[in-house]
Design a protein around this nucleic acid. Structure first.
Length: 642
DNA sequence: CTAGGGTTAG
């Protein structure tokens, strides 16, 4: 149905021309300039709108585009004239207002947001309009929608999220404008831009519920409003996040608001983030309830929604994050259930592939060969029906890499390379894949355990790094070796008990970093690997060597050159250097230093492993009182860690 | 802005 004003307006050639302009992607002055330059149009203009000032007309079209200020000023002057009118608005003024507001709504500047609300406020004084009810909730929601976009990157004076809420509540109370969607837009704007707290979001939700319960039907709180409050809590990542989300779901149940797909998914995702076995079990519970709701017809999925994949995938993620030893088995079960439940609704891209990928990852947690075999099985099963992506390959590679099986990894990388060369550009083996391969070598164990292959393996890892460096030098950014990659190779060299080569590579790494490869910046782990290399040698002075390294770590970080302040692992490794060279007193001194630093808040607490290594330092020493000392440490372990 | 990635203390 057309309002009176629309009928009036559409009868004039002016407005017809303006309406026929393409939708404004560019600011309004640009289109207006085009309008003005069209002489044909000008003939149809019975009278120029007030904001077509003469000065603008004289400027000519091209300069008007280059000098947008001119039009803004014209808009401003006609706006100000309108706003300053104390008498009731004339019909002409109403027509002009409608034109202005439609222009403002098409421009995404902060200025037009502010203008449009000022205009609305002025018009509300004179309501009802002589031209029907074109000032309605739909218009308000479009304005709030614009404000929301503008707020994304800016703060708008006098139009903060809470000020907008006050404003909208005022409109609702005095002008019967606004509905639940209006409130949703405000919360969404605040939440997504990070400008409000979850408490604020909850507050708006409650206000909406109150309005609705007072008989204001347009404020019926829909599931998306509840869901955006839930997201607010998720983004806040507070300890009470899950409890609050549960309370929100409880509220939905009380008010008999149906839960939708996103309500269930949010709950599962929030729980998965907790990373506990209990949370993973609760995810399974919600998954079951979701399936029941689906079978009862309470939630439906359009073909684009892709059924349950997301929920299953996130539940598997919950198991992965739980670190539970059952994660692998659980992942398999859930995958099977997913395939059974929704064989016909599975969508490759959005749902299935990630679920498989996390399931593969779950198999790596045991760190056993049989885990790697399981990972391979799942990968093979996946490949029968679907298309594994980059992450699928990476996770499979990781499964074999972690158990030190470089031959398997080499083969998989080769498969990827073949697929890449056949046109699958996403499967290009990049530095991440190559790093996984490198660490597979660096971790590899001799297959027959008779001959120590560490040197050979470390050399292979080192050579691969040189290949990456060469490729990078030749301009291949995707193979740029980064800190992880260097650390892997150093780890291989450390395993062959060669601290000199480790420290040489550390220097190379530092040079690479200084030469501009910012991603090769040595970190604490790099230095810890060097410390570990010393701890593995039989050098009687390795304690002193390690202490020197620790000192330089402190110096480097205090000088602000590298961010390598020693951590608990660094000190523990130093302790091991003394401990494994028959210097238990020195090891204990290190431990005492750690305690001191911890008390001063400069270091994390020594771990159980720290104490166990101290105990071993005494036991393996030739000290006369070694048993008594070891007993004392044992008591300390019991005391601290139960 | 819906999950999933590579390095660490024998």
């Amino acid at each position: 149905m057309r309002s009176r004003i629309q009928r009036v307006l559409s009868s004039t050639a002016t407005i017809r021309r303006i309406r026929r302009l393409p939708p404004l992607q560019s600011p309004p002055w640009r289109s207006l300039a085009a309008t003005v330059s069209n002489s044909n149009l000008q003939r149809h203009l019975p009278q120029q709108p007030a904001w077509y000032s003469s000065s603008f007309m004289e400027e000519g079209s091209t300069s008007a585009i280059r000098k947008p200020k001119v039009l803004i000023n014209d808009l401003e002057s006609s706006m100000n004239k309108l706003l300053a009118t104390e008498d009731p608005l004339s019909p002409e003024a109403w027509i002009e207002s409608e034109e202005l507001s439609s222009l403002l709504l098409q421009d995404k500047s902060i200025r037009s947001v502010v203008y449009s609300f000022q205009l609305l406020d002025r018009l509300l004084i004179d309501l009802p309009s002589p031209f029907g009810d074109w000032i309605n909730t739909n218009l308000l929601n479009r304005m709030v929608g614009l404000w929301r976009v503008a707020l994304w990157e800016n703060d708008i004076p006098d139009y903060s999220v809470s000020q907008m809420l006050d404003r909208v509540l005022h409109y609702a109370q005095h002008h019967q404008l606004g509905n639940e969607k209006t409130l949703y837009l405000i919360v969404e704007a605040g939440v997504r831009s990070g400008k409000t707290t979850p408490e604020f979001a909850e507050d708006v939700l409650e206000k909406c519920i109150t309005l609705w319960q007072a008989g204001n039907d347009p404020f019926y709180p829909t599931p998306p409003l509840f869901n955006i409050v839930t997201r607010a809590w998720m983004l806040a990542q507070r300890p009470e996040t899950v409890t609050r989300i549960e309370a929100i779901v409880q509220r939905m149940v009380e008010l008999m608001i149906p839960l939708n797909r996103e309500s269930y998914l949010n709950m599962i995702q929030a729980l998965a983030a907790l990373g506990s076995t209990d949370a993973a079990l609760r995810c399974e519970d919600i998954l079951d309830r979701m399936a029941q709701a689906y079978q009862a017809g309470e939630i439906t999925f359009s073909s684009l929604d892709g059924a349950f994949g997301g929920a299953f995938g996130m539940t598997i993620t919950a198991w992965f994050k739980s670190g539970s030893p059952h994660a692998g088995r659980k992942a398999e079960e859930l995958l099977r259930k997913m395939l059974d439940l929704h064989a016909n609704h599975l969508h490759e891209k959005t749902d299935i592939i990630p679920a498989f990928n996390v399931a593969i990852q779950c198999q790596t947690m045991s760190g056993t060969i049989s885990g790697a075999k399981k990972a391979q099985e799942i990968f093979n099963m996946m490949r029968e029906r679907f298309t594994p992506d980059y992450i699928s390959y990476l996770n499979l590679i990781q499964a074999w890499s972690i158990v030190g099986q470089p031959t398997r990894v080499e083969a998989i990388v080769q498969q990827m390379r073949t697929l890449y060369e056949n046109g699958n550009e996403y499967l290009r083996p990049d530095s991440v894949i190559m790093t996984a391969l490198i660490s597979a070598h660096a971790r590899s164990n001799s297959p027959n355990k008779v001959k120590d292959n560490r040197e050979e393996a470390a050399t292979r890892a080192y050579d691969l790094l040189q290949e990456l460096k060469d490729a990078y030098k030749n301009g291949d950014e995707s193979l740029k070796p980064n800190v992880v990659c260097y650390n892997s190779v150093m780890n291989g060299l450390a395993r062959m008990k060669d601290p000199h080569r480790v420290s040489q590579l550390l220097r190379e790494m530092f040079q690479d970093y200084e030469a501009g490869n910012k991603s090769a910046k040595p970190d604490v782990r790099s230095f810890n690997i060097l410390l570990k290399a010393w701890s593995l040698t039989s050098d009687p002075h390795k304690g002193e060597r390690a202490e020197q390294i620790l000192k330089s770590m402190i110096d480097l970080s205090e000088a602000g050159k590298l961010d390598v302040a020693p951590n608990v692992i660094s000190y523990t490794t130093l302790l091991t250097c003394y401990g494994s060279s028959n210097r238990p007193q020195k090891a204990e001194e290190v431990f005492n230093e750690m305690e001191r630093l911890h008390a001063a808040g400069k270091l994390g607490a020594p771990t159980k492993q720290t104490l166990q290594l101290l105990k071993r330092a005494w036991l393996t020493s030739k000290d006369k009182n070694k048993r008594t000392r070891a007993k004392a440490v044992e008591r300390e372990i019991a005391l601290r860690f139960g």
